[in-house]
Amino acid sequence: MFDPTVFENLKVAFENQLYDLDTLDETIQITGRKDTMEMSVMGRAFSLAFHLTGQEAVTAELRLEASLKELAAELLELPGEMPSCELSLLFHMRVKDFEQQCPQIEAVFQRIWPENPVPVQTLSFVFSEGQTEHLSEIKLPFKRKINEEQMEDIPSLLEHVLLTLRALGEVSAASMEGK
C-alpha cells in the first residue's frame, strides 16, 4: 500500500485550505500552481500563487520543497533523521518609490511576523523609456523546516498571509494615490 510522504501530506493540506479560500470563501483567487520533480537534484517542489479577491496588485506564493536527502531519509526510514520540508512565502508587488515603500514593507512584516527574520526584498525593473516602477519580490524565510506536526498551524499561517496581503495592498494603494 502507498504511504504518502510528509511532502505529499503537507502539499494536500495546503491545497485543501487554499482551494477552500478560493472556491468556497472566495477570499482569494489562485493564479498559479506548480508541482514539480527537479530531476537534476531529485527534489520535489510545490507552489501555489494567489491574491486577495479584488486586489490584484499584490500576490503571494507559498512554496514547499523537499530535497532528495529529506525524501530518502523518510522512505528509507533512516535512524536519527526527521522527515521534513522547507516552507517559504514570497510576495510580489510593484513599488513606485522604493526608498519610501521598502521600509514600509519591512515594517508590515515586523508587525505581522515578529518571530521571523527580516524579509529579503529584491527589486528589479524592466528597462524601457519612462519606466518608474520596480517589481518587488519579498521572501519571508522561516527558521526551521516543517513536518506533519505543524499541520494544525496551517490555518493560522494562512491567516497571517492574508493579513500580509491586505497590509501590502495598503502600501501599494497609498503609493498609487501619491502618483
Rank of each mutant, 00 (worst) to 15 (best):
D25A: 15
G43T: 05
M39R: 12
L64A: 14
F98P: 09
D25S: 14
L78F: 14
I30P: 07
V12S: 09
Q17E: 11
E61A: 03
A66I: 02
L75Y: 08
Q55D: 13
K96M: 02
A66N: 02
F125M: 14
E177K: 00
L158H: 06
E86N: 14
T132Y: 05
E8L: 04
F14V: 00
Q101H: 14
A66Q: 08
R144N: 08
E170I: 06
Q131P: 07
E129A: 13
C85Q: 14
T164Q: 03
E86Q: 15
A173W: 04
C85K: 11
K11Q: 15
K145E: 07
D35H: 09
A60P: 00
H51G: 01
Q29R: 06
R166S: 15
E152Q: 12
L24W: 02
Q55H: 09
M42H: 00
R94W: 03
F127P: 03
I105W: 06
S172K: 03
E70R: 08
R33W: 01
S128Y: 10
F7V: 11
S124F: 00
I112A: 12
D153V: 11
E38W: 01
R33I: 04
S88Q: 07
A174D: 03
F7K: 08
S88D: 08
T59Q: 07
A167K: 10
L123P: 00
K143W: 10
A107R: 14
V12T: 14
I112K: 11
L62W: 01
T31P: 00
